[in-house]
């Protein structure tokens, strides 16, 4: 067996899905014995068989990738509960196995996957999808690129037919539930100070109270400012305006979408806020 063959063999064995009891499969899907396969390239020792030594890698691989996905969706996990969430993650990873050098991208398609698989959230499906979308928007806002915002001399050159790009880390979401409140309750649990009378020791007693969710249309801008991820709720007209600009419509076209006597103040406010936060940058990037 060459080194390349050995690497491919082990990759195949390590990435093979676990049993329901989270142990290594005793046989491959082709019916080959994993005892025999492991023995062919892993030496046993006094403590462990070849199978058991390989199984450690197999299980660690899956625990790591499951953990990586779970880390991105704590609020979704809180909504679904551990059992349903674990089932969702395993099904997702089966369809979307890791193909990138970075685990950062592993859970990128979970919102779309959940969208197509209502069975994992049953009657909470729409809510679950919205939570997943917001949590992934957080990941993208956290490490999305930041481009130098337009400077005042560059703004002076803009006209109605100019296009503007929005910062890559800015994510605009239309959701059917106030999921920002739900995600915030999970990500920012309420801290209660507990003081010990004798030692005056302060302990943080972190409690999470999940808010009840009823359908309510919301428009959110998730973005990074000064290395911290924030969200803002937007009016529908603000959202539509920014969305049009993000889709590279010209300023005149974007403004036209919501133009009307009553919208002048909204337009001015949206452009002011966006430029104050540095959201506008060169469209060439």
């Amino acid at each position: 067996m060459t080194l390349l063959e050995l690497q491919r063999r082990m990759e195949q064995d390590v990435r093979r899905p676990l049993t329901a009891e989270l142990t290594m499969q005793p046989r491959t899907t082709e019916g080959e014995s994993m005892d025999e396969i492991a023995a062919a390239y892993i030496r046993p020792n006094s403590e462990l068989t070849s199978f058991e030594r390989l199984e450690i890698y197999n299980r660690q691989y899956w625990f790591r990738v499951i953990g990586a996905v779970s880390e991105d969706y704590p609020a979704l996990q809180a909504l679904l509960g551990d059992e349903r969430f674990d089932a969702l993650v395993l099904a997702y990873l089966k369809q979307r196995p890791s193909t990138s050098w970075t685990l950062r991208d592993l859970s990128a398609h979970l919102p779309q996957f959940l969208e197509q698989h209502a069975e994992f959230a049953s009657e909470q499906h729409r809510l679950a999808v919205d939570i997943a979308r917001l949590e992934w928007a957080y990941v993208e806002a956290f490490d999305g690129a930041e481009i130098e915002p337009l400077a005042s001399d560059e703004l002076a050159k803009l006209g109605p037919e100019s296009t503007l790009a929005l910062q890559p880390h800015l994510r605009l979401l239309a959701v059917d539930y106030p999921v920002d409140e739900f995600v915030l309750a999970v990500k920012k649990p309420e801290e209660k100070a507990v003081t010990s009378g004798a030692a005056q020791l302060r302990q943080a007693n972190v409690t999470t109270t999940l808010p009840a969710m009823a359908p309510e249309q919301r428009y959110l801008a998730v973005h990074r400012y000064d290395d911290v991820v924030y969200y803002r709720t937007l009016e529908e007209s603000e959202f539509r305006l920014l969305k049009a600009l993000q889709e590279r419509k010209t300023i005149a076209e974007a403004v036209e979408i919501i133009a009307g006597e009553e919208q002048v103040a909204t337009i001015q406010q949206t452009f002011a806020l966006s430029s104050e936060l540095g959201w506008f940058c060169h469209p060439t990037i």
């Binding site: 703004l155 300023i251 337009i267 001015q268 949206t270 452009f271 002011a272 966006s274 430029s275 506008f280």
Partner: peptide
């Protein structure tokens, strides 16, 4: 309004 907002922001 858009350009006024851009400049003020």
């Amino acid at each position: 309004a858009a350009f006024a907002g851009l400049l003020s922001g």
